[in-house]
Structure formats: C-alpha cells, structure tokens
Nucleic acid binder design. Structure first.
Lengths: 209, 209
DNA sequence: TGTACATCAGTGAACGCGCGTTCACTGATGTAC
DNA sequence: TGTACATCAGTGAACGCGCGTTCACTGATGTAC
C-alpha cells in the first residue's frame, strides 16, 4: 500500500488509486463488490472524492477494463513476437499468453469480459479491445498464409475460432477458482492440444500422425 | 402473469414464482439486479415471504442455475438423439443445441455460468451440471470410437475442447446483446465451422478437402 | 360429517446499514505579473 | 523573488433510498378422531 502512505489534502494520484482499489475489490468480493464508496475508502479518501475523476461506477469499471485490454494487448504482442521464430510456434505462444493473462490477472479479465459493460461504453474501451483483437488477427493472417491458396479459410474466422476456444477454456477452467471443475490436465495443455488439433484440421499438421 | 392472478392469503406456488421472477430480473437488469426484495415484489408477496423457501439470494440463484442445467441437459440429449442418424451429424447437432440454449435462454445461461456460484453451492446443482456435461461426454465417446485405436485422443479431452469452443462462442457472440462485437457470420455458423475443422484435425474429415 | 387442533405460508412493521449523490466549503497548487 | 489570484482536488455533513433480516402475528390447510 505504498500508494497510501503520507499525503496531505491532495491525494496526488487518486485516479490510479481508485483503479487499483477496484481491482482489489474484484479480487476480494467479485464484480458486484465494487462500489464507489468502498473504492474511496480503500484509497483513504472521502466518498465524494471519486466524482472528481469518474462519472459513476461504470465509468470506473470501463477504465479498469480499458487498462486491462492494454496490458492484454502488450502480452499478446510480446508472445507473437512478430511471428518469430516461426509462425506456428508463435501462434501457440499467443494462446499460452491468453491463458497466462486470465490466470495472472483474473480481476482485469473479469472487468474486460464479464462486467457486462457495453463495449462502446467509451470509445477508448472499444478501441483498446479492438487493438487486442487485432494481435490475434495478425497472427491468424500469418498462419493462414501458410496454407495453399485454394480452400484457404478466411483468417477472420480462424482468429475468432482461436479466440473463442481460448476464452472458453479460460472462463471454464482458467481462473484459480477453487471448486471449479476438475481437469485431467492443465488449462494450458488443454488449450495447446486444442489449437494443435484445430491447426491440423486446417491442413497445418506437423505430420505427427 | 397468470401466476399472479387471484390468490388468497397463501400464494400456492411461491417457490416457482420466485424463480420466474429471478429469471425476469436477470433479463431486465442483469445478474446484479436480482434481489430478494424485488423478487418478492414481482411475485406480489411481502419481503419476508421468500425466506420460507430460500435461505438467501444465493440459494435462489443456485436453484435457478440448477433448473437451467436440467433444461440444458434435456436440449442436449434431444439433439444428440442417441447418436442418430449418424454420430458426426448428431455431434454437430449437439453443438448447435448448445448455442440455441444460450441464445433462447440467456437468463438461465447467465445464472449457470456467470453468477459466480461455487459449483458445490448445493449437491443438486453440482449433479445437474455433471449430468449436462455427461451428454457431451457421451457424444465425444461415440465420435472418438470412430477413430483408429492407435493415436486416438482421450474422449474426455475432446469433450472439453468442444465445450470450451461452444462456451467461448456463446459468451463472446452468442447472446442477443446489441453492441456486442459484430461477426461476419452467425454464431451457429462460426461454431459449426470450428467443430468441423477440429474434427478434421482428429482425422474425421469428410474428405472434403 | 363435524369439530379441534397442529402446522404451515405469508404478513406488515420495524430496524440498521451501506450506497449514491449533492452541497457549500477549504486547503493546496500553479501561474501571471 | 514575491505576491495576488484563479483553479482545482478533496472534505464532511447530510439526505433519501432500497436492501436484508427479524419478529410476533394471522389466515388457510390438512388431519385425527
């Protein structure tokens, strides 16, 4: 709580402090536990103070989600790494990064995908989501380019398939929730195997069978 | 509102009425909008009445989710239809039924998968979820049995892949939410294409390529 | 068939609580000159 | 370098509201005999 230390009348960085407080609250009490009043309390500030920075609770959540998408995009971009060392390998790395994000940042993930925010709650939110998706789209383009031109599936569809699979695995099994369904393997292995089978279905088998 | 008509001191079927009220509230205001007091109001009953039937809000939601899983199981079972006329065809029907449920019963779907209920909130809930999953599992067993014995993937994994893909598509694109991401195709087509590619990756291509 | 009684489902009034929101305010910061 | 002033971020007190929960109660139902 170094963002709480000694301060005078002005907080100095209340906006960021509220976002952090919201993330902690999501972690502790779930999405429904995020309240303007409690975020203010966590930041050590009066209940009226947040209004200087956010119109209402939803605006705060939208900002949390936007930041989440930015971090998400950064992780996916790093994993893709321009398609190196090799598109297929890099593609799988993107999948792993997707799960790693859901696992290591469950609060962000919840705000991004489960808060029920209209995606156009703010233009910034929509654009951040779009940029994150575009990483997946770029990767799919590169992978599709490996396929023979005839019968090549649209890369947009491939990217949506992988996104759906990754999101499904993450939602159903990917968070640390105890009491979640037991798996005979890790979510990472499950997703990786799924992507491999899918890519083989596209004709990109590593001729392993 | 025929479940509201004329009644005397006793409601007669308050338990079911509260469940219906909860479903309506989910539809109107989202999961967070479900409140004991408001469900009572919708059922035309005093705020203390629900306590005769449910310990608290979570118990009510768990019962909604349980009923949802039962309907879900029934739909999936009907779609599978014992693997007729042919396992692969029936398997695809199960996928379509999954999406159809998410689309036609979004309130149930939300209670089942997004309410953040611990799956063992009640034994009945857990078991209902298990039974629904087992339909998918049965279908996957049958499909895997079509594969040559060597290198055959475990059916448990296949069922989890399909479940994840279906859940991902349903969560991201499958509900009627306006403002949801635009798709170049319907969710049903997206899922069907994904399952087909996946099955081809398993070696079950209909030799179409 | 009737009567007494136990059981049960719903009442309504009350309470404490936390949240959202507004308001005139005040302390701090920065800037013009 | 100093001073006056505008701007801005946070205060704290107040309010109305709806929710959860408890309580002694009462009207209806069913059952024993």
């Amino acid at each position: 709580m170094s963002w709480h230390e000694r301060r005078g009348y002005h907080h100095g960085n209340l906006r960021e402090a509220l976002i952090k407080a919201a993330l902690n609250l999501i972690g502790e009490k779930g999405l429904g536990g995020v309240t303007f009043a409690e975020a203010a309390r966590a930041a050590g500030v009066s209940p009226a103070a947040p209004y200087r920075h956010f119109r209402d609770r939803d605006a705060l959540m939208a900002e949390v989600a936007r930041q989440g998408f930015e971090r998400f995009e950064a992780m996916l971009t790093a994993a893709w790494n321009g398609g190196r060392p090799e598109p297929l390998k890099a593609f799988e790395n993107v999948g792993r990064a997707y799960l790693a994000f859901a696992r290591s940042e469950p609060a962000y993930y919840a705000a991004m995908f489960e808060a029920g925010l209209p995606p156009d709650a703010s233009a910034e939110l929509r654009e951040a989501g779009e940029r994150a998706y575009s990483v997946l789209r770029t990767a799919s383009d590169a992978v599709c380019a490996l396929l023979p031109k005839e019968g090549r599936p649209p890369a947009s569809m491939v990217s949506l398939h992988v996104w759906s699979l990754a999101h499904g695995v993450a939602s159903l099994f990917g968070r640390g929730d105890p009491g979640r369904r037991k798996l005979p393997m890790t979510p990472e292995e499950l997703l990786e195997a799924g992507v491999l089978i899918y890519l083989q279905g596209l004709g990109l088998g590593e001729s392993k069978r």
